[in-house]
Design a binder for these strands. Structure first.
Length: 488
RNA sequence: GGUACCUUGGCCGAGUGGCUAGGCACCGGUCUGCAAAACCGCAUACGGCGGUUCGAAUCCGCCAGGUACCUCCA
């Protein structure tokens, strides 16, 4: 492939040229949600970030198999490897079956991501659908000697693993440091090492979701599902593994250890981590209670918001920052994005109506390569947007008759705008007139043509009446050099 | 306590050694019957103190403030 895409790899802590394992095919695994409650905006940011990455890989011509799991079992309330899982707890609370909880929040998750215009992954496997694969993996890890069973629960032996392979490779930490950094944790159980984690957990009689296994009835630990499912669908080694930064230290570290112990090879070549969405500088999280639900954002029903913001405004807002930077969420920042997004999209629709001239007096020919260059540099979407705004200037000048553009350049500009705005950034117009019917549009045009006549007759009273009343109905009227534009 | 990371003009946010990112807001101007839109101009920003260098927001050191991870969380 003729491109130079660079990706920041958490493993090496630097940007590396992206070279897929199998020339034009890419395997990408992203850790999905645990569906025991509504997704908040911080969760959405990660999935939108990976959507942008997925879209750009497709743009480059790769055949991408994008796997994003749904965790619907085995995720415990704490890290003590004891107690019931999150679904069972929530099920008791809402007086539902655990699978009703899973169904309810899976549907909600898909609805929200669809509203944000994210592309569905190629495969979306669930933990409960892969119990036997997980059991097989635990067996293999036991056989390789990196796990031990105590009374129906199987633990991963971190210290033994670390003797052969570096456990803290993803966070650049030594085992001694990890063991030292001890803030005394209560609730000791029968684990041998403090860092050991459960691969399989023995069920109690009251446990709602449990399956038979060689170690008795139980359920899988949280980390094993991703190892099992990524191996099944992408192979023992694949190209990209992604997720939120908060998963790096524990979940992904454990995933690497498990996969290595079972498959004797590193699971992923490139590890990508998206940064957190913050509110007043503090990470948005379920437990901190500062989470925004997407619906609250759309309707404005939140104490920190003055009003609602559209899904595409939010998507644009996120694309304006780099995925590895924290992004601070505020009413003011969203307002700025809303304005900017609207201006960009207005320019985009204006571009479609531009008249070509014999020659170009503006230079827009390098736009595509500039945008590609930005994306090739670790998916730098804010730079892409900056380039689009530069081109927007040219579009407006041509529209105002102050500059000209040739037919050839105009075609290319239209293509590049369409490709980067719609295909890569995944933004779409929310202009309601685009979906309106012809008769309705014709009626508005008729009114505005009558106003144009009145203007020509200097009948300002009639012309202003038409404009003011349409404005009062929610229309936005703009006069142009020899006509008008309108939208709702 | 340990380990990282961050601190950019009013706000958001790119940028890793010289070549003013971009958006929003403000102000001034062009255009317009008026308005809106559009366009042009405008802020010479890089937490503080030192150092390296011909030259640093960008490298190094110290200090201050903040955040994250080490406990479930995208």
């Amino acid at each position: 492939m003729e491109h130079k895409l660079y990706i920041y790899n958490t493993l090496s802590r630097k940007k590396e040229q992206f070279i897929p394992l199998h020339d034009d095919r890419v395997g990408m695994y992203v850790c999905g949600p645990t569906v025991y409650s509504d997704v908040h905006l911080g969760n959405c940011r990660t999935f939108i970030s990976f959507d942008l990455i997925y879209r750009y890989l497709l743009y480059l011509g790769y055949k991408v198999r994008y796997v994003r799991n749904i965790t619907d079992a085995g995720h415990l309330e704490g890290d003590r490897d004891e107690g019931d899982d999150k679904f069972a707890k929530k099920a008791k609370l809402e007086q539902l079956e655990p699978m009703e909880i899973v169904q309810k929040y899976s549907i909600g998750f898909h609805e929200i991501l669809s509203i944000f215009n994210t592309l569905p992954p190629s495969i979306e496997p669930t933990a409960t659908g892969h119990i036997s694969e997980q059991i097989e993996m635990v067996k293999a890890i036991l056989e390789s000697g990196y796990a031990y069973e105590i009374d129906g629960t199987v633990y991963f032996d971190v210290e033994k693993y670390n003797k052969d392979l570096p456990y803290g490779i993803l966070t650049n930490r030594k085992l001694e440091d990890l063991l030292e950094g001890t803030r005394e944790l209560g609730g000791q159980n029968e684990k041998k090492g403090r860092l050991d984690f459960a691969l399989w957990i023995k069920a109690k009689s009251e446990t709602l979701m449990q399956w038979p296994s060689p170690w008795g009835w139980g359920f899988p630990g949280w980390h094993i599902e991703c190892s099992a499912m990524s191996t099944k669908y992408l192979g023992t080694t694949f190209d990209i593994h992604g997720g939120g930064m908060d998963l790096q230290a524990t979940h992904h570290t454990n995933e690497i250890a498990q996969s290595q112990a079972c498959n004797h090879t590193a699971p992923a070549k490139y590890w990508m981590h998206t940064n957190m969405l913050t509110v007043n500088g503090v990470r948005m999280s379920k437990t901190a209670g500062n989470g925004f639900l997407p619906k609250e954002l759309f309707t404005g029903a939140h104490p920190l918001l003055e009003r609602g913001y559209s899904p595409m405004t939010v998507r644009f807002f996120m694309a304006q920052s780099h995925y590895r930077s924290t992004l601070d969420f505020s009413n003011e920042a969203l307002q700025a994005s809303e304005k900017g997004f609207e201006r960009l999209m207005d320019g985009y629709s204006r571009l479609q109506k531009l008249q070509a001239s014999a020659v170009s007096s503006v230079d827009t020919t390098s736009l595509r390569s500039k945008c590609e260059e930005a994306m090739n540099d670790d998916f730098n979407t804010p730079i892409v947007i900056a380039h689009l705004f530069e081109a927007l200037k040219a579009i407006n000048l041509v529209h105002d008759g102050k500059e000209t553009i040739s037919a050839e350049d105009l075609e290319e500009l239209k293509t590049v705008f369409s490709v980067f705005i719609e295909d890569v950034l995944g933004l779409k117009s929310e202009d309601e007139t685009s979906g309106g019917n012809e008769a309705y549009k014709g009626a508005i045009d008729l009114l505005l043509n009558m106003r144009l006549e009145a203007k020509q007759n200097k009948d300002w009273a009639t012309s202003d009446k038409i404009r003011n009343e349409l404005t009062a109905l929610g229309f936005e009227i703009k006069d142009t050099k020899d006509g008008f534009e309108w939208k709702i």
